[in-house]
Amino acid sequence: MSSTMTSTKASLNGKVAVAQTPSSANPVGDFFQETIALTRRLFIQLQRRPSTLIAGIIQPLMWLILFGALFQNAPQGLFGDNVNYGQFLGAGVIVFTAFGGALNAGLPVMFDREFGFLNRLLVAPLSSRYSIVAASAIFITAMSLIQTAAIVAMSAFLGAGLPDALGLGLVALIVLLLVVGVTALSLGLAFSLPGHIELIAVIFVTNLPLLFASTALVPLAFMPIWLQWVATLNPLSYAIEPIRYIYLHDNWSLNSIVMQAPWGQVTLGTALLILLSFAAAVLLSIQPRLRRSLA
């Protein structure tokens, strides 16, 4: 598309400049330009206010150290053959940290809504207003991967071992799928709820219960049956169990059975499919809300 529609008009400092109209540009290039600029803003914020990232790295490390120590004297073999609690816990902390970060993804958007900054974006001739959502998702994903890397490194240091390259790639993919789904959920909430107080309340009541009703801290077999049902309906478990399996077994494959749910066995492949469906379902379900706000 090189047919440029340009019009000349006197620029503000008296020189003649070329004023561009949106029809002259290609929509894909425009989408990248605006998404990159919006993402850059979030990274500048992070760079100037690094406290969230620092806290986001320190917190899971504390989990690893303190929670690991809490169960240090648990009877051998309680969490599986030749598995100490530190090895068991790593997967839970990775997933829980990524989940917490993604759940908070909507907060900056909510503040932009409340302070009117979103209006600045909405009056601009964006190629697609989904660039606003895309920028948040890119940012949160990058944050989660940095945190995951820190947890993986710390776990290795604490003696939990390190999966091979392919295993690490799969861990990253699992984190990515969960983060996309949860980020979408949080952004959907950020456009539906009236203000940040309500959003924080929702985050607050979602965060810890979902952690305790998952296999992050204890194996499924420890739980009463009703909680096993809840935990196997919790998407977090479908991220935790595959990562844990990859950590504990060198010879993993997509057919490996990673979870013994009360209703049957779950393979690594199935878990991935369920995470993918979760992300897709959330993305689809927030479409109407986003379209109303961003159409």
């Binding site: 070329v18 561009q20 949106p22 540009a25 425009d30 330009q33 605006e34 990159i36 600029a37 919006l38 850059r40 803003r41 600045r120 974006l121 601009a124 001739p125 964006l126 190629s127």
Partner: peptide, 10 residues
């Protein structure tokens, strides 16, 4: 700079 990108200035 953000504003310039949102309005797709070359």
């Amino acid at each position: 700079q953000l504003q310039a990108a949102l309005y797709h200035l070359p």
